[in-house]
Design a protein around this nucleic acid. Sequence first.
RNA 1: GUGAGUGUAGCUCAAGGGUAGAGUGUCGGUCUGUGGAACCGAAUGUUGGGGGUUCAAAUCCCCUCACUCACCCCA
Length: 416
Amino acid sequence: MNKLNAPKGTKDIYSPEIEKWQYFEDRIRKYFTLFNYKEIRTPIFERSELFSRGIGNETEVVQKEMYTFEDKAGRSMTLRPENTASVVRSLIEHNLMNELFPHRFYYIGPMFRYDKPQKGRYRQFHQFGVEVFGDNSPYVDAEVIFSALDFLHTINVTDMKLYINSVGCSDCRPGYLEKLTIEAKKNKEHFCTDCQRKIDTNPLRIFDCKVESCISLADNLPNITDHLCEDCSSHYKEVKNNLQLLGMDFTENKKLVRGLDYYTKTAFEITSSKLGAQNAILGGGRYNNLVKELGGQDLPGIGFSGGIERILLNMDTPPSDNTKKLFIAYQGDDAMAEAFKLSNQLRKKGYIIYQDYSSKKFGKQLQKGIKLGADFTLILAEDEIANNEISIKNMQTREQIKIGREDLDKWLKKNC
RNA sequence: GUGAGUGUAGCUCAAGGGUAGAGUGUCGGUCUGUGGAACCGAAUGUUGGGGGUUCAAAUCCCCUCACUCACCCCA
């Protein structure tokens, strides 16, 4: 029989790593509640059409990376490669604009992309993110960007850089793209084959190319930022002003084009230098046409999503929680039964307590208490049972006291 | 999709044609009243899988699979 392994690009998460995840998720919930976000959980799979329409048919994600399958009724379904399209679908479907206020959502969950795995890149990976609907103010852009970076600061992610850009809107982008295509075509034969294709399909993506000759050719191509309409240009300026109001450092990157086609106006990305090749840990932007394109009203939106695996690679071990752990040791059969009763009473009162049933040897039990990392060991042996007492050993200081059983509650309240 | 590297015990790794090993962890004992110890003992491997060369393969060759990293793309 072959050994069964987790599928390529997926992994099991268990202790001690799981504690990092729990800590991280807890912090997300607490932090983004400060901004009045409400959690939303959407299905892991959706109609494939949602993503091809929402993300854009020409993107790498939709072209090559989706986990698409037919369900038994012959409908094309796709494991979600990102969550914004789903949130928008849900917003439209349930008229959440009318139901809930504020129109702010956060999410945490697995996403799926059929990529070749490497450091910080998995086929099932996890993102958290936020979406804000119905507010076109450049203050919102700055607030969203601020919250992303500030949140990462609060969990001690270091060596971060913030890049921003404006990618225009449906008014100015078509004109720009036309110009870009014309310019790029002048040197078409000098671009790599990949870029030659992009010129026709999605010229904006030329700026993503890492081929050296393409980079220098791209340097001479017109930038979207220089061809923004009045509205986009002033919006961008105000976003930058507002970021400065919050004292934020950022780098303008005129080549920053995000991989999902729905972005308009503000686009941003946070990288961390500690990560190696996959250095983007969070990205986002405004998507003022997406709701309408997916069949809803004409409603602006903005959001971001962050890669949890990548952030955790870059995050220090979280502070250990200081909930005291107890171990109960016993000697003799009577004491074992007594300890058994006591430990379950204590759990009822909310204490974390572990009892070992496999060994009756006192020394071995103590060793297990040590291995468990117990703060205190409660000791019930013949003496204690006879005198209705209990000994308590501080595992750190190795000091031991003996108290009456009736005083145990008081002691626990004081020390645990 | 392209390229490179690595697969030996639960984990970290030796052995580079001649009986598969160490450290660590696990379990048991010394040891039914006090410590992370020491000592003794045990279990865990078709050396990722398949084929080939050879008297003999973990070792050399071929195929395959898995993992890791980089390119691409992205979180």
